[in-house]
Design a protein around this nucleic acid. Structure first.
Lengths: 168, 168
DNA sequence: ATATATTTTCAATAATTATTGAAATTTCGG
DNA sequence: CCGAAATTTCAATAATTATTGAAAATATAT
């Protein structure tokens, strides 16, 4: 397979992959393109390569920057802005985990705290099932939260291997 | 907070949560409803509780069954089918991990194998960056795959052990 | 300061995805 | 079997989400 074809397949699959994880296709594709580009690219490079509009490109680049996955790069003598993606995949994963934890897991845990304190007789089957379910989710969620914290702090991806011990 | 309100908030949040994870809102809501219901429910119960159409209910229940998160339950003397969700959250998580691994991670790893074998001179910066990126992702992906296998095989989450007995 | 290049915004539109509801099919008691 | 109840399907429609492109804002060189 030629590089051009391989690149395109990677970009397209990474995009499809992203959509299964709540990330929009274009954002994932821009990320993929930057991941396999040895040099930083401009908005125009990205627009051209992926044949998408300027607005779309701009919005998704900014979103990638918000997620901490892409950086603006200044190149001296160049007026345009350049962008490059973090190439160390372990750092990328940690960054994504960190963001999703903050955006989704933590708010969910806060909500569960509130819901667990529902009024009513614990002898009532309805109440009991509700409280038990909520507290089960909460406990697992809190543990996941802690585990992810440790993971985010880990220097090396080998930690993932070490995690296995926990499950044994 | 009253049970009814708490239930509704849980269902609605679980639905929103799901959408961030590539799961459609209704499917997640049905799942949430069944999670907090002490007794199995019929399609009509679910339709009424969530005010959604029969078709929608049916399709999403089937999808939940495909995911292994919901079971058909036969109740003697009843003509209608009843449905109930696995209440053991650890099992739920394992089941979801198992399915997503099969549906997403494994195909991605297969693709990466193909892409890594791209033609071209490794001295070429473009080729090198591509191959390095792909093999970095592959390495991490394989590791994750193994770790998840171990996790799926684990009998109990490392901490919820005692709690789970409560549900049984 | 002005002209020009570059980036950003956002209302309009397109594309995608979810939902409905009625018809077709299946199941099951009598 | 027959008929009623229950389930499933799926074309039509609605709702949501993504994308465009042109105008506005901003930055920079001269």
């Amino acid at each position: 397979m030629k590089l051009t074809e391989a690149k395109q397949q990677f970009i397209s699959s990474w995009g499809a992959f992203g959509t299964h994880w709540g990330i929009n296709r274009t954002m994932a594709q821009i990320h993929a393109l930057l991941l396999v580009s040895p040099e930083p690219l401009t908005q125009d490079d990205i627009m051209e390569e992926l044949t998408i509009s300027r607005g779309n490109t701009n919005m998704n680049i900014r979103e990638l920057i918000n997620w901490g996955l892409v950086d603006r790069v200044l190149i001296s003598g160049e007026r345009k802005e350049f962008f490059s993606a973090e190439k160390d995949i372990w750092k990328v994963v940690k960054q994504i985990v960190k963001e999703r934890k903050k955006r989704e897991l933590e708010p969910m845990l806060q909500l569960l705290d509130k819901l667990e304190a529902v009024e009513g007789d614990k002898k009532d089957k309805e109440v009991k099932t509700f409280v038990d379910t909520i507290s089960g989710i909460k406990k697992l969620g809190r543990q996941a939260d802690k585990t992810l914290d440790t993971m985010i702090r880990a220097e090396e991806s080998w930690f993932v291997g070490a995690l296995m011990k926990v499950f044994k």
